[in-house]
Amino acid sequence: MSEYVLETKGLGISFGGLKAVSDVNLKVKKGEIYGLIGPNGAGKTTVFNLLTGVYTPTEGTFFLDGKELKGLSQEKINRSGIARTFQNIRLFNNMTVVRNVMVGLHNRKEYSCSVMQSIFRMPAHFSVERRMREKAKELLDIFGLLEERNNLSCNLPYGKQRKLEIARALATEPQLLLLDEPAAGMNPIETEDLRRTVEIIRDRFGVTVLLIEHDLKFVTEICNEITVLNFGTVIAQGTVKEALSDPQVVKAYIGS
């Protein structure tokens, strides 16, 4: 056990000669909501892609709860305990809402059932299916999506699609949840709703949250600590107040 859920050491990646992100050191404590902010093109999503295995870091490494995850595939990293949502929502559009969450439950040990067991319709198959559905409904209830469970996920309104994506990510039982601009495109009411959702994630599920966000009001309200990126490097780190009053941050956001 480590003091930090997520720890990155000199994390960076270059594409050819271009250093997209370099020397990012994050220390995210357990049960914290940690913000990652910065102007457009600062490399925030790239950091997420590094942490979830979409890209392999060319420099540095990162640890989840003391365990090094660098170089693992996306699937393995997810199973080790990092789940994410996407900037542009990626749901399984041709599936119903409840099925989307059930896909998230797929890898949990308590719902394991081999292909043969499914093909030959052994009792294990039925029991697993029933329990998965119950669990999915439970999760949907927490996020207020129970009513919509039989709708196709592409027919949900935007805010609910975001919530469903979060529910699906949580269904994989992560230790750390990465939210990529969860409040983008939301109206104030939806943002407020989202804020409550994120708090539920932290308090009820005990999941640590790392989020990218442009809505600074949202960030100030919810985050314990933030890191500010610009041009792929960290320009400020610390509590929200400290970081946002840093002259470099002010310069990056407002210009000199």
């Binding site: 595939s73 789940a83 998230g104």
Partner: peptide
């Protein structure tokens, strides 16, 4: 089929 990137990120 529906979304390979999301499926990978969900641990499939």
């Amino acid at each position: 089929r529906d979304n390979e990137i999301a499926a990978r990120a969900t641990g499939i």
